[in-house]
Write a protein that binds this DNA or RNA. Structure first.
Lengths: 173, 173
DNA sequence: TGATAATTGTTATGGACCATATCAAATATC
DNA sequence: GATATTTGATATGGTCCATAACAATTATCA
């Protein structure tokens, strides 16, 4: 047995466990009451985030771009010539974990590492022509398939308010 | 070398890489421009979610409850007598992954599995007395340390609107 | 009824993501 | 010029998420 490390192993599966009848005698599994859970910001926030990412990934299936990869391309396009440490830290990605991410983008010829002549330790990041083209197509996909879906759900004004509140939480919490 | 599995290994680290000078000759690392990134709902959503969870975990440090554990306790309190499959699926947790989570709560005597007499395959879940007491304290911590912090940031009306929009996204996207 | 299918909790396992320590090369500091 | 710091990289371990498989039990239905 190899219980998860956080879970102190609780002895062999079914040691002294009482038996009892439940109210669902052939009852047809009514949905559970969420109760206070639906008021927990963290809970709702996470569920919403998962849904948005899920949809994003579906929309990007043809380009095979994950949210993280898309964010790197966007950031490098906007800030060409920055090094890995700068780009990674801006995205909240730790340098060691950024290496494989970049390896992937570089191997697909979307992004290039160029050794800086000013500081030969660092790698300057730029988009390749193909990277720019793919990012352009990605933006269109996001607009037409992803954002559009969201606009059906939320009023434009509300969408803006939502973004603003989330930014506030992300930056000041 | 063991590059991440998603990243096709791109050959040995620094193969043909050009050199080039950047604009930051002894420049003091100005912050990068987020650009369109700050308008990407998914990006902002994720950053906000991480911040909220981070704060939640800090607030719960004395009780050692993660967001997932807290959600299980809340749900079992509201719906005593349901089995693992029902509780797990309501929370979007896959049954196999729910086992270790429950092992942990049960080993800490916060929650109990009871074999149902109606269907001897299933385990009925209930909170122990200690579980109820701990959950009660947890709720107070959330209210006084977590939610309060949020209320400083957002107007009450805005907080309600935020929750409503997130729920809409979580449920209808 | 009895053979077969489905369900429940569980284990095993692998992938993705995140975090820390460490290293060589290059640069900064003093 | 000796020492400390920074950069990209590797190794490694933890946590979370997803799938396959299994035994015990229950449902289905011929």
């Amino acid at each position: 047995m190899t219980v998860s490390k956080t879970a102190e192993k609780s002895g062999d599966a079914a040691k002294g466990r009482k038996d009892v009848g439940d109210a669902q005698i052939h009852g047809h599994a009514e949905a559970l009451q969420l109760g206070e859970l639906s008021e927990q910001l963290g809970y709702v926030l996470k569920r919403a985030q998962l849904k948005v990412f899920e949809n994003f990934i579906r929309c990007m299936a043809s380009l095979q771009l994950t949210p993280a990869q898309f964010s790197v391309l966007l950031l490098v396009e906007k800030n060409p010539g920055r090094n890995q440490t700068e780009v990674a830290s801006t995205l909240g990605i730790l340098r060691p974990n950024f290496v494989a991410l970049l390896d992937n983008l570089e191997s697909r010829d979307l992004c290039a590492r160029i050794r800086s002549t000013n500081d030969r330790r660092s790698h300057i990041l730029v988009l390749t022509d193909k990277g720019k083209a793919v990012l352009s197509r990605a933006k269109k996909l996001v607009a037409t398939k992803h954002e559009s879906r969201l606009n059906e759900l939320l009023e434009p004004a509300n969408r803006e308010a939502l973004l603003q509140m989330l930014s506030k939480i992300a930056n000041e919490f």
